[in-house]
Design a protein around this nucleic acid. Structure first.
Length: 219
DNA sequence: ACCCAGGGTCATA
DNA sequence: TATGACCATGGG
């Protein structure tokens, strides 16, 4: 296992960037919509999450107050294409409530990223990866998002092992953040590129361990 | 007829 | 701390 240092990270970014070009994430017009997207895409393809987002937008409901005014059953039905729609309806409601309560007009200067992250994590249905996506793409904080694609890629490249559990997650996240520094745009591109690469078909020879074990290659 | 997807919560041990 | 069940739709 080689060390994940600045040079290797820069090489990785360069390779992915050259292969896939500029990603310009996160898809979404407003910070609020990005947050909703981050919840809806949990363990779901973006295509399905996007369907639910479109249904919200077409009805002009992409605002916390409008979503909260819906009957629970209506909200669930609205989110159906995203899968896990009952859970997600509840999570969206909780987030909207927080948005209206804590994030409305007059608020003290933005809290530091750590404090904001802790608040997000305290919300039901917001775990580390969703919180970090929101911090990075909706709030512009310099956060590195560790998701399934990131674990697979770094593991496959022999740059990092990220066993399940919050400890290892935090360790890798802070490590990469310290390597890159306060550059939200760079971190945003990096994560987007990793995901884009993850969607591509694995052309490695020989096939990596995971690919050999699966009918559908996740790379 | 599976397997998978840009996770998270909850119950167990 | 760390597994496993569960959620649920749409595409391969």
């Amino acid at each position: 296992m080689q060390a994940l240092d600045e040079d290797r990270l820069a090489l990785l970014f360069q390779a992915l960037s050259g292969a896939y070009g500029k990603q310009d994430w996160w898809p979404g017009n407003t910070a609020f919509e990005i947050c909703i997207g981050a919840i809806l895409v949990q363990n779901t393809s973006w295509a399905n999450a996007a369907r639910a987002i479109e249904r919200i937008r077409r009805r002009d409901l992409m605002q916390p107050g409008a979503l909260l005014d819906l009957e629970p059953a209506s909200l669930e039905d609205l989110l159906r294409p995203a899968g896990c729609y009952r859970q997600k309806a509840r999570r969206v409601s909780v987030f909207c409530r927080w948005w209206l309560d804590a994030r409305l007009p007059s608020q003290a200067p933005d809290p530091d990223t750590g404090a904001l992250r802790a608040v997000l994590l305290s919300l039901h249905g917001i775990g580390p990866e969703t919180a970090d996506c929101i911090l990075l793409y909706a709030f512009g904080r310099a956060v590195f998002v560790v998701d399934a694609y990131t674990r697979r890629l770094l593991s496959r490249l022999g740059l990092a092992q990220v066993p399940p559990g919050r400890r290892a997650y935090e360790s890798l996240r802070t490590h990469v953040e310290s390597l890159i520094g306060p550059q939200p745009a760079y971190l945003g591109e990096l994560h987007a590129l990793i995901v884009e690469h993850g969607k591509q078909v694995c052309r490695a020879r020989p096939l990596c361990e995971r690919c050999q074990l699966r009918t559908q290659c996740p790379y």
